[in-house]
Design a protein around this nucleic acid. Structure first.
Lengths: 145, 145
DNA sequence: TTATATTAGTTGATGTATCAAACATTGATG
DNA sequence: CATCAATGTTTGATACATCAACTAATATAA
């Protein structure tokens, strides 16, 4: 029991290691943080959208979204305007120059991902994906002690 | 190509999701951050050790280690002393009261881990572990563009 | 033995995620 | 219509990780 438990612990630890490694390496390669790229990626895919929708897609805090967008707006990567039909929500989209820049990052990321999974077959990817999903479900179900 | 690539991207994304989820949930359950628990866990396992060795084990920044330990020392969870044979290094260990407290956290974590992997067979754990290891190797090999 | 390099640890600056509190706007109810 | 609840966004406080610059101690080499 103690042994199998510590084995699981190691898997969890490995997961965190890989994750940290990904973030560090990728950010080091591109100069953009993962979460910022997630935001930009989402805007690239979706076009104009509300901050709320964006926040739900990329799954980081409201406050963080606001701050990222503020900076991105200053650098003319992103533009914002109020929804004329509901002044609570603000719409965000990539600027033209932002859109161009993001293209390069997306290629970079694609390359990164291809390298990361270079020796994974389709089946293995699927397997990994399924396992992660199960982990996610299990963890969601955990109650506060 | 575009399709399989975005599939990989989703796997990577899922990995990050799970990781974030783990950290949030666990910290929410115990009130201790993962990295702080890693530090305490390591001290629990190893006993007294140098900060350098600790840092290498838990793999977070020197500066972060220093700051964690400073706080833990203030709260009497940990005690530090200089290595009399080499005044550059400082040894750290759990205090008696620290040791007791950590026991509870470790149990909490064991429970958490058991829940997370509750429907995973030994083989599956091993499989996941191997895949993560491969990812790690692949990512290590990626050069800055 | 004095100068230089290396090692361990600390501190300051910066970036970013989080929660909670505040705010403005809108919707719903009496 | 007036009040109250809900929604979307912002700000402030806090926590943490990272890098770079710094200090102190030791090891190396001239």
């Amino acid at each position: 029991m103690s042994h199998s438990c510590s084995e699981k612990a190691n898997v969890l630890y490995a997961l965190q290691e890989v994750n940290k490694q990904i973030n560090q390496k990728f950010e080091h390669c591109t100069g953009v943080s993962q979460s910022r790229l997630d935001i930009l990626h989402q805007l690239y895919e979706t076009g104009e959208m509300s901050q709320k929708a964006l926040q739900q897609q990329v799954n980081i805090d409201n406050a963080a979204i606001t701050r990222h967008l503020k900076q991105l707006e200053e650098r003319d990567v992103v533009s914002r305007r109020k929804n004329p039909d509901d002044n609570r929500v603000t719409f965000v989209k990539l600027t033209k120059s932002g859109h161009e820049k993001i293209g390069a990052f997306r290629n970079e990321k694609a390359r990164f991902i291809d390298e990361a999974f270079k020796d994974f077959s389709e089946e293995e990817q699927l397997l990994l994906s399924k396992m992660l999903e199960r982990l996610k479900v299990n963890i969601s179900a955990i109650e506060r002690s």
